[in-house]
Design a protein around this nucleic acid. Sequence first.
DNA 1: TTGTATGCGTTATCAT
DNA 2: ATGATAACGCATACAA
Lengths: 330, 330
Amino acid sequence: MKKQSFAPTMKDVAKEAGVALGTVSKVVNGLPVGDSYRVRVEDAIRKLNYQVNSYAQGLKAGKTYTAALLIPNTIDPFFAAVAYHINIALIKRQYRMLLCCTDYDPRQEQEYVVMAQQNKVDGIIGLTYNPGLIVEENTPFVAIDRPMGPKIPCVACDNFGGGQLAAEKLADLGCKHVAFLRVGSSLDNEPNKRKAGFENGCLSRGLSCEMKIINDGAPYEEFETFLSEHIRDGKLAFDGIFCVTDRLAWLVLGTLRRLGQRVPEDVQLIGFDGIRAFGSIDYHCSTIVQPISDIAEMCVDLLLRESALAKPPLVCLPVTYAYGGTTREP
Amino acid sequence: MKKQSFAPTMKDVAKEAGVALGTVSKVVNGLPVGDSYRVRVEDAIRKLNYQVNSYAQGLKAGKTYTAALLIPNTIDPFFAAVAYHINIALIKRQYRMLLCCTDYDPRQEQEYVVMAQQNKVDGIIGLTYNPGLIVEENTPFVAIDRPMGPKIPCVACDNFGGGQLAAEKLADLGCKHVAFLRVGSSLDNEPNKRKAGFENGCLSRGLSCEMKIINDGAPYEEFETFLSEHIRDGKLAFDGIFCVTDRLAWLVLGTLRRLGQRVPEDVQLIGFDGIRAFGSIDYHCSTIVQPISDIAEMCVDLLLRESALAKPPLVCLPVTYAYGGTTREP
DNA sequence: TTGTATGCGTTATCAT
DNA sequence: ATGATAACGCATACAA
């Protein structure tokens, strides 16, 4: 009755071209069709400005060529980079991406999962924090940075190795007494391994190491207090500091300068993630760089892989060190 | 024949509950149904873990509650913020967002438009650079920062006013000889008005002003050359500089320091956009702040507005000034 | 009130 | 090789 949209359909094209519906479908999908018919159909398509309705295609095929990305936001540069590279990796495979920003909110995370499933996406990639997230068995899901059980593959960088690398770098650069600063959730997630890796590295290289770990909600000032309490006669007790993220390193850098410490002369600083100013200029600090585009590729690859058997539970990708001005170059 | 997905459908629920298909549909959509029926249907839904297929809904309704966002990437912090706030604004209205990163590539931009139309999205929001972008008449489209003709509303911040504000600030802060640095496209876009606004402000406040404008592809080094050529006996010819973006200001800041100029003591610097380090910490420089969340709200509001008559061709939203360490506070 | 039947735009399976 | 037709999952006008 009411033709809600004025967009032409295959039926319109068929009528215009004077052929049957099925013929149009074949032309659209590149199936063999008599040349004279093909030309007439193509003309009609151009004339009517016809475009296939991929919703109808999806309904028919039970496949939508769409994936959802669950991520806290795109404001944090690490998340922003993840979103960008996942998008690239999906588009390369002709998939579209539904972006779902969760704001770290477990309820929103769950709502988005439901929404994604209703939309019958072909899969979900999630960097989530909800420990009790419920995902349908038959919805392919790949997690970033947080293991979610044996059936769901998790992709992360080699956080343990990264922590270790940071310790080794500081040792190579002449540090003796180092500190590890972290703000983090108590959740069981991969980035927590940075601490263990760093400890391990310090141990094997004979560095004395002090830890300062505060919880997610706690105020940053606790680090300021910690640092100022470790200054005697203007001299900081540490000659090297490893921060769990570049973001924290940036804040610490400001604090150190306010406290009269020179970086990297008095104390060297290494962060984690590999964030660049404005997304592409220089690093904010010397840092352990996550291979974000490899992570994205791996996520999409695992997500779209047919065989569930070929999906490993945890994939760790190698990190690299990059100089960013807060360490002394050897 | 082949039941491609094992996801239950309304038909399955109806069979399970022993009611008719239509009854299930009514329950799902909250339409009046006898209580005993409702309970049975709800039980069946829970038991089968049924979820509506919004693709089928969309096909039926001719409306998909989905919008597409075309943007070069989410790496650049300004774009990242736009994506985030557009997403928020859409979700608030129960719309989902298809993210389309175009990499500034006119061909990709066009491909995405076609894709979005095939997906029968309810509308497109685009921050695009393709001057010849072809959009179907009946696909609602809202542009950010670039006017695309009388039929397509364009949303931007008050770029002219922002340029003017920068000039006035520099004047208030005691500058006499200022410069405007810009790297930009020759396209007819809104941000180009920053220059005109700045010139205007300089004129009315009696500032002498020099312009240095390089094209999109040109190397940044041209600015270095420009600046070093304006140093006589270690003294820069300008006491104030307005950069067309925070990104450029950040680069210029590095150059000035390398050239031995102190900021803000010798020369004050104002950028444009209001980018914060790590998305949420401090500003990189004193800056003219774009009201990104208001821009996002306005875009979505215009996009979903029913009446085409009520869609103004250009909406400019007010900017503000923020101190970011590269100016002398009064 | 509840059930039945039709159509949304496609694709695929049949006859022709 | 082409045309008619059924089916995908859902909403709805209509019949019961």
